[in-house]
């Protein structure tokens, strides 16, 4: 029997949640035995070539590329998990959500103390397009499970992964749910 396949991605996040995944200490050896990593920054596989069992998403969507990655994860993964505050509720990047994007861009590119001369808001076609606000993942695609925390503790990630792999409901003891 082939091993369950996991894919991961960091969208508008800081990779902290990925770090927390690595923070499961020696359980990582067990994890490697249990699963196969597919598209993920962990193994640097860049495109989906097969269906996956579990997709772990860190970060919300702040630009259109995030949306496309998220949508392709939804398409290729049986179970999609929002990992961390940013994926769950936008997180730190979403602090800009009350401010019109035009003001944000102007503030960042035209009005900063370090800009001088003829400045423009970058508009190269290759650049991802910033969205009007930062969206939590589940406001774009259906998400099957949520692991809050900034980052979620390694124990929570471990509990979620093992539960999903064993096909049992999550046992969320009090110490596992934290939003900070």
């Amino acid at each position: 029997m082939s091993k369950p396949v996991i894919a991961t991605a960091s969208l508008a996040g800081c990779f902290g949640c990925h770090m927390s995944l690595l923070d499961i200490d020696d359980r990582i050896l067990k994890l490697i035995e249990l699963v196969e990593f597919h598209k993920s920054p962990i193994d640097d596989i860049k495109t989906f070539t097969k269906p996956c069992d579990i997709g772990l998403i860190e970060g919300g969507c702040c630009n259109h590329e995030n949306v496309e990655v998220l949508r392709s994860f939804r398409k290729h993964c049986k179970t999609l998990v929002a990992v961390g505050e940013c994926a769950v509720m936008g997180g730190l990047p979403a602090l800009r959500n009350g401010i019109p994007i035009k003001d944000c861009l102007e503030e960042a590119y035209l009005r900063t103390p370090t800009t001088e001369g003829n400045t423009v808001i970058p508009n190269d076609e290759e650049l991802p397009v910033i969205l009007d606000k930062v969206y939590p993942c589940h406001e774009i695609v259906k998400v099957d499970a949520f692991l809050p925390g900034c980052p979620p503790s390694a124990d929570l990630i471990w509990e979620a992964l093992t539960a999903l792999l064993e096909g049992r409901p999550l046992k969320l003891t009090y110490d596992l749910i934290k939003y900070d």
């Binding site: 769950v88 509720m89 936008g90 979403a94 959500n97 009350g98 606000k133 692991l147 969320l172 749910i177």
Partner: peptide
């Protein structure tokens, strides 16, 4: 045991 609110964020 709230993992995510059932309601959309209002920002």
């Amino acid at each position: 045991g709230m993992l995510v609110p059932r309601f959309p964020y209002q920002w």
